[in-house]
Design a protein around this nucleic acid. Structure first.
Lengths: 97, 97
DNA sequence: GTAACATATAGACGAGCATCTATGAATAAG
DNA sequence: CTTATTCATAGATGCTCGTCTATATGTTAC
């Protein structure tokens, strides 16, 4: 049973610079926590904290492997939430031909 | 000269229940501040505060008229920001046929 | 088992935010 | 001009959040 995408939780996930950086970094490939922390200017616990948030929001896939944990962005959730936002807040906009 | 849509500011605008309610209420029609405050469970200054935020984010159109001020959601900004989010965070999702 | 490594959790702290009350500014009505 | 109405602004307050350090948990290597 999939978690229902809450529009406010989705927006809150995006409403932070570090979290958006994390999402970009693991958008299209699996990334370990250490990799993420290494390229960001925050500590490892801070990265773990943000990853927990993204996990709660169903915005990342998780794959534990040995002593590392790999994360990858859940693009389906992003697309679903963006679609809902469009339906709610841009119903009169139509796709360019 | 149009303000550039900042994805974090856009997300922060959506990351609050009251602001999402306001956006829904003035999505497709002009609404005065009094109307909005009347239907929401917050005070008029709180509504004005949120409208100022949405104004800064270029998310509403404003039309002063006498002693009232009418607001309407700027759907173009919403669509533009959602499009950017899709490009950044859901590049592998393709439209259903 | 012990040591080293990778991640998660706990607790603390400071900044930011959503809300309120009180008040200012602008407009309409009398 | 005075009063009433509508909205915006200022200041205060309590709560949330992002970050840190310290530590716990789990895993691999020896």
């Amino acid at each position: 049973m999939n978690k229902i995408a809450d529009p406010i939780e989705f927006a809150r996930a995006l409403a932070d610079h570090t979290r958006q950086e994390i999402m970009k970094m693991c958008c299209c490939e699996w990334r370990s926590v250490g990799e993420l922390a290494g390229e960001l200017e925050v500590t490892q616990p801070t990265v773990s904290h943000h990853l927990a948030f993204l996990r709660e929001a169903n915005l990342v896939h998780v794959r534990p492997e040995g002593r590392q944990t790999f994360y990858m962005l859940n693009q389906d959730t992003v697309a679903s939430c963006c679609g809902d936002l469009m339906l709610n807040y841009a119903p009169d906009i139509r796709e360019p031909a």
